[in-house]
Design a protein around this nucleic acid. Structure first.
Lengths: 222, 222
DNA sequence: TTAATAGTGTCTTTTAGACACTATGAC
DNA sequence: GTCATAGTGTCTAAAAGACACTATTAA
């Protein structure tokens, strides 16, 4: 049986997004060594063939190890490939994107959450990967419940609308939005008519949760 | 610098679709050796790091070598990975899908074009790849000019409608379809009001070509 | 002239947007 | 009570579907 080509390096990487104070942010860490020492980079690592069933399992393991995350929304984005910046080396990077509410993240993993509108130079081709992930998020967000993956399990209608506006980058009509979400049965009210633990909110609102925590897509835009 | 893991095999594969007598078909070849000897498989091969700039270049080279195709519509689909059927081996398969009109294909490459509704058992996980490619084609076909990539450069409106119906799997309303295509400026008439070299056609029709040969997407369904 | 498909016009239904209005709770 | 935001109702505009109708050409 043929040996694998030793010049081909296989890595998995994830653009992990969350909302910090209404800003869409991506998780980055600072490289401590190598060609890109000092630059910021996406979360990533190598596949462990005897431990990981597939690349999805590999990036799941890495997200747990490097960000402390479990059961996060995760979807394959695209595979980037070609000569990387190391001489004589050619790599295949299977990129994923992940969405999580801020309240599921914990400190101590050395990650920075950087506003996607204020990204510094990134290591490798991570700039490209982040842009591709943002494009996917914005496009798919228009006809799915994807933006809701950035919210905690329970949320109000105004919060849902705000996250859609953030992701889509455009204001939405309030009553049309409610109508659409309702018709699509995207959410269901939390039974005991809970109102939120208000902060600067002027008035409590009904809490909802996703009717189905999984990704749902529709054939029309919201 | 770390060596690449010798258990990881990297391959590129393509589900190449075309229309044969109004049936959507995928290009398959029969395996002549190996674990799946005798089974049918997608077009694919290995990456040549010193020859291929990236995996897209690799599959482009392979499509030229194994199907005689150049400048075909090609898009990355998804990467499939995990233990393949060989003991001790774990592979990463970067899958693409390609669309071509039949008239650009030539004989002599040992390919069979098999109706996607009558697929035999396939080698490896190629069944899964074909299904994923079909799903992509059908979904994306609903809001893009993707189905037109299956037609020759010049085509009539009825032909365009037929290929959309084939891809989407549902009949379309004639006047609404024309209206939509026209509004979107998807096509432009071929200047000298050419009518087609009729075969069993009862009446000639205006020829059109894509306004832009590249993939175009819209934010609403057709 | 007839058969058959190409292509148009128009009415109806559905969907989306605008926006005024009512409701509720903090203060 | 007032203010601010939550949430509803209703009118209008735009898009999609249905379908009858006209146009053109081969035979």
């Amino acid at each position: 049986m043929a040996q694998a080509d030793p010049r081909l390096h296989v890595v998995v990487e994830a653009a992990l997004f969350t909302l910090v104070d209404d800003r869409l942010c991506v998780a980055l860490h600072r490289m401590r060594r190598g060609l890109f020492k000092g630059a910021m980079a996406l979360i990533g690592g190598h596949v462990h063939p005897d431990e990981d069933a597939d690349t999805r399992a590999a990036i799941t393991r890495i997200l747990a190890d490097k960000a402390g995350l479990h059961d996060v929304f995760l979807e394959q984005l695209e595979t980037f490939s070609g000569k990387d910046h190391h001489p004589q080396r050619w790599s295949v990077s299977i990129a994923y994107y992940a969405l999580t509410p801020l309240d599921r993240l914990s400190e101590g993993f050395g990650l920075e959450f950087v506003d996607v509108d204020r990204l510094p130079e990134l290591a490798f081709d991570h700039q490209r990967i982040v842009q591709a992930a943002l494009g996917r998020l914005r496009r798919k967000g228009a006809y799915s419940n994807l933006p809701a993956m950035l919210l905690p399990a329970e949320f109000t209608f105004p919060e849902l609308k705000a996250v859609y506006e953030k992701v889509l980058g455009a204001p939405l009509n309030d009553s049309a939005f409610r109508r659409k979400i309702t018709e699509l049965k995207m959410v269901e009210p939390v039974p005991e008519a809970r109102s939120p633990a208000t902060a600067e909110r002027k008035r409590p609102a009904q809490l909802y949760r996703l009717a189905d925590r999984r990704l749902a897509e529709w054939d029309r835009t919201l």
